[in-house]
């Protein structure tokens, strides 16, 4: 049985269930008071609903084999050289940044370097820069690397944004998606004060996956779906009718702009027109990056295309699952 931890609280709970469903792996949770669930079609997987903050530790200690968690949480909690590793770093939801924020009237502090200067000046006066955060390790590393060497960490309890107003901390380091909460509490971000840009990620215990082929196989199925789903979200499929003399001549026109002509090249097929005999119509299908949609439509029009339909693929499978291959390499490293 593969134990798969999903966030039970936090902002990641609902999006994680939606993501699983969109991957064709809907999670069945009999009741909101039950802390286990199952995945349709994967009887060898048991879902455990756990607090986000606990998931890295559960995966680390092996009571969970896989888990979905914010990347910043994983970076904070993982043990260097430990068994927990990331299998996919971008599940495409739960985007946020871990940022340094200071009171907005600190006009003399706009960058981390200014904070470093201030901490040195305060140290001379016997004062300490007090930093409130739930990410003690990430903060210490980031500050040391940027020359802020004198600070003390204040334990976080509840809403940290009020700490500077209430006077028990000077600086906060927390995650934010939009910055609104910071601004409403009269805090500002530093220009270069982003520690991590994070989103939901899939982590796993490498020892557990290495020792148990059944767990590894269940993981492969999940990785296949996740990766193909993620890849598919970046592409659209366009189908257009084009008049021409032959498949080859149509293909030649479409491939004049190679980067708009599909992953490998266009698929060209005869269209048997309703008014037989044949009018020389062909259907062309290309798969292109989503952000290139309008240039691709324009290109197809330019070479005579019409009746262009656009579809979003649900999955895009490559010859092999890259994330799974990476995992195998990781496991082979001993």
């Amino acid at each position: 049985m593969l134990n798969f931890s999903l966030p039970s609280n936090s902002e990641l709970h609902d999006p994680s269930l939606r993501f699983m469903e969109s991957c064709g792996l809907p999670v069945d949770r009999p009741s909101s008071r039950r802390y286990t669930g199952s995945v349709a079609g994967l009887p060898q997987v048991q879902v455990l609903f756990q607090r986000s903050a606990d998931i890295p530790t559960k995966v680390e200690e092996g009571s969970a084999d896989l888990g979905i968690v914010g990347l910043e949480r994983f970076y904070e909690d993982r043990r260097e050289g430990g068994p927990a590793i990331t299998l996919l770093e971008d599940l495409g939801y739960g985007q946020c940044e871990l940022v340094v924020a200071v009171p907005d009237a600190w006009i003399d502090v706009t960058s981390v370097a200014d904070l470093a200067d201030l901490s040195v000046a305060w140290r001379e006066q016997g004062r300490e820069l007090r930093v409130v955060t739930k990410y003690a390790r990430l903060v210490s590393r980031f500050f040391y690397r940027h020359g802020v060497n004198y600070f003390s960490l204040v334990e976080a309890a509840g809403a940290m944004e009020v700490a500077p107003t209430m006077g028990y901390a000077d600086v906060i380091v927390d995650i934010t998606a939009t910055g609104v909460t910071l601004r409403e509490n009269r805090l500002k971000m530093l220009s270069d004060g982003t520690l991590v840009r994070a989103q939901a990620c899939l982590i796993g215990n490498r020892l557990a996956l290495k020792e148990d082929p059944a767990k590894l196989e269940a993981t492969r199925v999940i990785l296949e779906r996740f990766e193909a789903r993620r890849r598919a979200s970046k592409f659209v499929s366009l189908t257009s009718n084009l008049r021409g003399e032959s498949e080859a001549s149509v293909a030649e026109r479409v491939t004049r702009l190679p980067d708009l002509a599909g992953l490998q090249g266009p698929t060209v097929g005869r269209v048997f027109g309703k008014g037989y005999p044949d009018q020389g119509w062909y259907a062309v299908t290309v798969v292109i990056p989503r952000e290139r949609l309008m240039p691709a439509v324009e290109h197809l029009r330019t070479v005579g295309g019409s009746g262009i339909t656009v579809a979003s693929p649900s999955f895009l499978f490559e010859g092999e699952c890259e994330a799974y291959q990476r995992l195998l390499q990781e496991l082979a490293r001993g």
Binding site: V102, P103, D104, A105, W106, I107, D108, D114, D117, L118, A121, P164, T165, G167, D170, N185, R186, L187
Partner: peptide, 28 residues
């Protein structure tokens, strides 16, 4: 001038003395 501007902003100074903020701002 900077002191007046800072006071006018009505922002949060936290645990700091506005005087120190102004001095450091000008020094910077």
């Amino acid at each position: 001038v900077v002191e007046r501007l800072l006071a006018g902003m009505g922002g949060l100074v936290g645990s700091r003395d506005p005087e120190e903020i102004v001095t450091r701002y000008l020094a910077r």
